[in-house]
Amino acid sequence: MGAFSDTRGYVVELGQAWNRFWFSPTDPATLCFIRVLAGAMLFYTHLVWSLDLQAFLGQEGWLPVSFIRDIQGHQWSVWSLFFKIEQPWMLWSVHIFALLVFFCLMLGLFSRTTAVLAFLLAVSYAHRVSPGAFFGLDKINCMFALYLMLGPCGACYSLDRIRRLRRGDTSPAAPSTSANVAIRLIQLHLCIIYLFSALAKMQGENWQAGSAVWWAVANYEYQSLDATWLAGWPVLVALATHLTIFWELFYCCLIWNRFLRPIMLWMAVATHVGIAMFMGMITFGLAMLFANFSFLQPATVRRWVDPLASRIAIKLTGSP
């Protein structure tokens, strides 16, 4: 009887904890902040395709659509608008439309609609260049677009908010359960990314030996700021290598502890800023940092962003 009631009590508590974790309404400030950053990244990422749009995304570019579809196995679920588009004018029309969507998402104009469109478009681009020219940035961009669709990503820091203010609706963005679900999904997805990134590295001899960071910075094509002075500091290289693996491996556990969370986040800053500065992967490094921002408390985001957002709102609406 005691065991039964203990088990029942445990299950009830588990259910309550589950509900608190997923369904407690939260201030949407963090989600909205991520919308601004991810929207900017989506816009920039796709703007860069404009430099050689036909070659990367056209029917007969570097890798023709027919070849890509052969490699992808002609699966119906690997889909892209660009598989169907043949005329250059149509390609450019879709591209300009996509840039407008990403720009609107960044500004928070018709946010819920543009978030859905941004997801469909981002996946379309990614599937067209996978394989071909895709890399981690596309995976993270699509992840953002997927989860931004789920919550009120335009509740604040957005033109949608300005429009509401102009209509006289000055009530603050209300706590939202769907914002919490979206943020939780970004957080857990990020944990899975780091976990498997670490497990894959652990199979590498150079990661085990503690030399992998050297081989990464020694790559001439990746080099940005020169870090080859590390050649004379093998212990530093080894420490950075081992620390990277342990940080990635235990991120999924330690990030949930409120005392360790700041440490894990500062390590994320160090790692991804390092990748951005020394390996030139600025966009990817920033995108990973933006994903880490999902662990910021809304109050922290408000402390950082609200002063600027208020100034912009006053300028655009003419009233405080």
């Binding site: 996946v123 498997f196 590498g204 992998a212 990464a216």
Partner: peptide
């Protein structure tokens, strides 16, 4: 996984960093 572009291994610089 395909539809949502989630079919990835996330094996960044793994198993070992290689030449370009």
């Amino acid at each position: 996984l395909n539809l949502a572009y989630l079919n990835h291994g996330y094996q960044f610089f793994a198993p070992d960093p290689a030449g370009s």
